[in-house]
Amino acid sequence: MDVFMKGLSKAKEGVVAAAEKTKQGVAEAAGKTKEGVLYVGSKTKEGVVHGVATVAEKTKEQVTNVGGAVVTGVTAVAQKTVEGAGSIAAATGFVKKDQLGKNEEGAPQEGILEDMPVDPDNEAYEMPSEEGYQDYEPEA
């Protein structure tokens, strides 16, 4: 019985440690998101679009440190934060509304985080759909 109880105690310690790591990862992701939003706020009209992409990228980098179902929630929060940063930029006159959601080359930025393969159960990952990809044929 002692062996059984000791095993359960060790398992509990492992769960607590994993929860603490997840909590730490979420806190880091939130900190990076805040950094990115402050970065966007300090940019001029020309830099705002690039700044919004930076927020998304920093958040995406930190999301990889967070495991399990938390990833889905962090990704949703990050996307809403990026959308909010863009709205703030438009409201303050840093950028025109028609410039939001495009990178410096004018290509749409939507789907940055949505296409990231995420499995809350950590069982399997699927690649994003290939609808947006084109076949590449090298020139002879």
Rank of each mutant, 00 (worst) to 15 (best):
49 V>E: 07
5 M>A: 02
48 V>H: 00
81 T>N: 01
5 M>I: 00
95 V>T: 14
23 K>N: 04
35 E>K: 10
100 L>W: 09
33 T>V: 15
25 G>Q: 15
110 E>D: 06
117 P>F: 08
114 E>K: 06
43 K>C: 14
75 T>S: 06
129 S>N: 15
132 G>P: 07
76 A>T: 11
52 V>S: 04
48 V>Y: 04
138 P>K: 08
107 A>P: 07
27 A>L: 09
52 V>K: 00
30 A>V: 05
30 A>S: 01
93 G>N: 11
130 E>G: 08
9 S>Y: 03
43 K>F: 00
44 T>K: 00
92 T>P: 03
84 G>R: 06
40 V>F: 13
117 P>C: 10
93 G>A: 00
115 D>M: 14
100 L>D: 10
124 A>D: 04
44 T>M: 13
135 D>F: 10
129 S>H: 13
8 L>H: 00
63 V>D: 02
126 E>F: 11
120 P>W: 12
29 A>S: 04
85 A>Q: 05
31 G>F: 12
7 G>V: 14
107 A>D: 09
121 D>P: 09
103 N>W: 12
91 A>D: 07
101 G>K: 15
133 Y>S: 04
124 A>S: 10
6 K>C: 06
9 S>K: 15
2 D>R: 07
99 Q>Y: 07
96 K>M: 15
70 V>Y: 06
75 T>Y: 14
28 E>F: 07
32 K>I: 09
140 A>Y: 09
129 S>P: 09
133 Y>I: 11
58 K>R: 01
98 D>K: 11
124 A>V: 13
118 V>D: 12
65 N>M: 05
120 P>H: 05
140 A>K: 15
77 V>H: 04
125 Y>G: 10
26 V>W: 08
13 E>D: 01
96 K>C: 12
38 L>F: 12
51 G>N: 10
10 K>R: 05
78 A>D: 00
39 Y>S: 10
71 V>W: 11
118 V>K: 13
46 E>T: 15
17 A>Q: 14
6 K>V: 03
58 K>F: 02
120 P>L: 04
105 E>N: 13
53 A>T: 01
107 A>K: 08
32 K>H: 05
59 T>Y: 00
115 D>H: 04
138 P>Y: 08
98 D>P: 07
22 T>M: 14
127 M>I: 12
115 D>R: 11
37 V>F: 07
86 G>H: 15
126 E>H: 10
57 E>W: 07
74 V>A: 12
31 G>Y: 11
21 K>S: 08
1 M>D: 01
92 T>C: 04
75 T>L: 15
25 G>Y: 14
115 D>W: 11
30 A>E: 00
47 G>Q: 00
77 V>E: 01
137 E>S: 06
133 Y>E: 15
105 E>T: 12
66 V>K: 05
44 T>C: 05
118 V>Y: 05
115 D>T: 10
21 K>V: 08
4 F>L: 05
47 G>K: 10
36 G>E: 04
125 Y>V: 11
55 V>A: 09
137 E>H: 04
65 N>P: 03
128 P>W: 01
30 A>M: 13
139 E>W: 10
78 A>R: 08
38 L>T: 09
48 V>L: 08
137 E>P: 07
27 A>C: 03
51 G>F: 01
88 I>K: 03
82 V>D: 03
123 E>G: 09
39 Y>M: 02
72 T>D: 05
124 A>Q: 11
113 L>H: 05
75 T>R: 06
60 K>H: 09
70 V>L: 14
67 G>I: 11
138 P>A: 09
98 D>A: 14
110 E>C: 11
105 E>W: 12
21 K>A: 10
118 V>S: 07
135 D>N: 13
